[in-house]
């Protein structure tokens, strides 16, 4: 059970990912983000080798849709995987395998996709998009955090009708340099999304401000 958003900022071209999950230390997956290439964020029954492969394909010039086709052709367990991809043109690729279990799905918005599994229902991915689109002119990192909070507030994770806590959360934004501009993590906390907001408000974000480009 996990919910995520991957997005590209239409003003700056920056990429970002936001994630919240029951799993511990979701932010350790920093192989999912590559500057000037895109983001591939796999989850559900994920294999760590998936995101580097997808990003290598994007870097060669392949589209997200083509990369999904490569995965499907070589992975007998493709229907257990979920992943969202965005490339430097803002093109989305997304896959929610049919064997992941309820509720799993995704919702595509402008240069973004919200996707999750083990959720209370489709209102969660809609809540993520709603949070992301609430202030479309805000900075990408603010929008991503609002998105994750929107997912939580729409019911977040659930199994067998019971809500499940988010124990870890991650917010990462990358610009043209390889090192992330922002990389905030909560690895194990009873209310990880609230704690991520707390870290976000406490940390210095002055370097994220954008001049006119």
């Amino acid at each position: 059970m996990t919910y995520s958003i991957v997005a590209r900022c239409p003003r700056t071209g920056r990429f970002g990912v936001g994630t919240a999950t029951f799993s511990i230390a979701c932010g350790r997956r920093n192989e999912s983000v590559r500057a000037n290439v895109g983001i591939s964020k796999s989850q559900a029954f994920y294999d760590r080798a998936t995101d580097p492969l997808v990003l290598n394909l994007l870097a060669q010039g392949y589209t997200p849709q083509y990369a999904l086709g490569v995965l499907e052709a070589q992975d007998p367990d493709f229907q257990y995987r979920q992943l969202g991809i965005i490339d430097r043109a803002g093109t989305i690729g997304v896959h929610t395998g049919r064997d992941i279990g309820p509720w799993a799905g995704h919702a595509i918005g402008p240069q973004c996709v919200a996707f999750g599994n083990g959720l209370a229902g489709p209102q969660v991915v809609e809540g993520i998009l709603g949070g992301f689109m609430a202030e479309p002119d805000a900075a990408l990192e603010d929008r991503l955090l609002r998105a994750i909070e929107g997912g939580r507030d729409a019911g977040g994770q659930a199994s067998n009708g019971q809500p499940r806590p988010e124990r870890s959360a991650w917010l990462c934004v990358v610009d043209r340099g390889e090192h992330p501009l922002l990389d905030l993590r909560v690895d194990l906390h009873d209310r990880a999304v609230s704690q991520l907001r707390r870290v976000f408000e406490a940390c210095d974000r002055g370097h994220l401000r954008v001049d006119t480009r």
């Binding site: 192989e31 905030l184 690895d187 194990l188």
Partner: peptide, 26 residues
Amino acid sequence: DYSDVDLRVDLHGDAIRELRRTYDEY
């Protein structure tokens, strides 16, 4: 070509102890 352990505590009053708790749970 990805980490096999990567754990962080970004903000905590006793961050080393919190990292131990996270590590043991993880």
